[in-house]
Amino acid sequence: QAPETKIVDKSRVACDGGEGALGHPRVWLQIPEDTGWVECPYCDCKYVLKGSKADAL
């Protein structure tokens, strides 16, 4: 199944896999201003900063 994409309001987000005990260790991710998105290294969930150029795609 394809990784999930989430639109977020802040450039710093936490990801834990979203499945409680079945998820992964919580990691904090920083969305770079130049790209407007970041992917979780564990679950490949893509976080897109709302209003960024990546959000316009």
Rank of each mutant, 00 (worst) to 15 (best):
G18Q: 08
V13E: 03
Y42L: 15
Y42E: 10
V13W: 08
L22D: 08
L22H: 09
D44M: 15
G51F: 04
L29M: 04
A14G: 04
P3N: 11
E33S: 06
V48W: 08
V38P: 01
Y47R: 01
C45H: 15
I7L: 11
V13D: 01
W37S: 05
V48A: 02
E33I: 11
S11F: 08
L22T: 10
S52C: 13
S52G: 13
D16R: 07
R26M: 08
A14C: 13
Y47I: 06
G20I: 03
G36E: 03
D34N: 08
V38K: 02
V13N: 03
Y47Q: 04
G51I: 03
A2E: 11
D44N: 15
W28Q: 00
E19L: 12
Y47P: 14
I7N: 01
V27D: 00
D34S: 09
Q30P: 01
E19Q: 10
C15S: 00
L49S: 10
G17W: 04
A54K: 03
S52D: 08
G36N: 03
P32L: 07
C45S: 15
D16M: 07
K10F: 13
S11I: 10
G20M: 04
A2N: 12
G36Y: 03
A21E: 11
D16T: 13
W37L: 04
A56V: 14
T35L: 12
K6F: 11
P25D: 05
Q30N: 10
E4V: 14
G51T: 04
L49I: 07
W28C: 05
E39Q: 15
P3T: 12
G18S: 06
G17E: 03
K6G: 05
V13H: 01
H24P: 02
D55H: 01
K10I: 10
V8T: 06
K10Y: 13
D55G: 03
V38W: 02
L57S: 14
V8S: 06
A14K: 08
K53E: 10
Q1G: 12
Q1H: 15
G36S: 04
D44E: 12
A14E: 09
G17D: 05
K50N: 07
P41Y: 05
E4L: 15
P25N: 06
G17Y: 04
A2S: 12
L57I: 12
G36Q: 04
D16K: 08
K46V: 14
G20D: 06
V27F: 05
Y47H: 07
C15M: 00
E19S: 11
H24K: 02
K6D: 03
G51P: 03
K46W: 07
D44C: 14
G20L: 05
P41L: 04
A14D: 04
D44T: 14
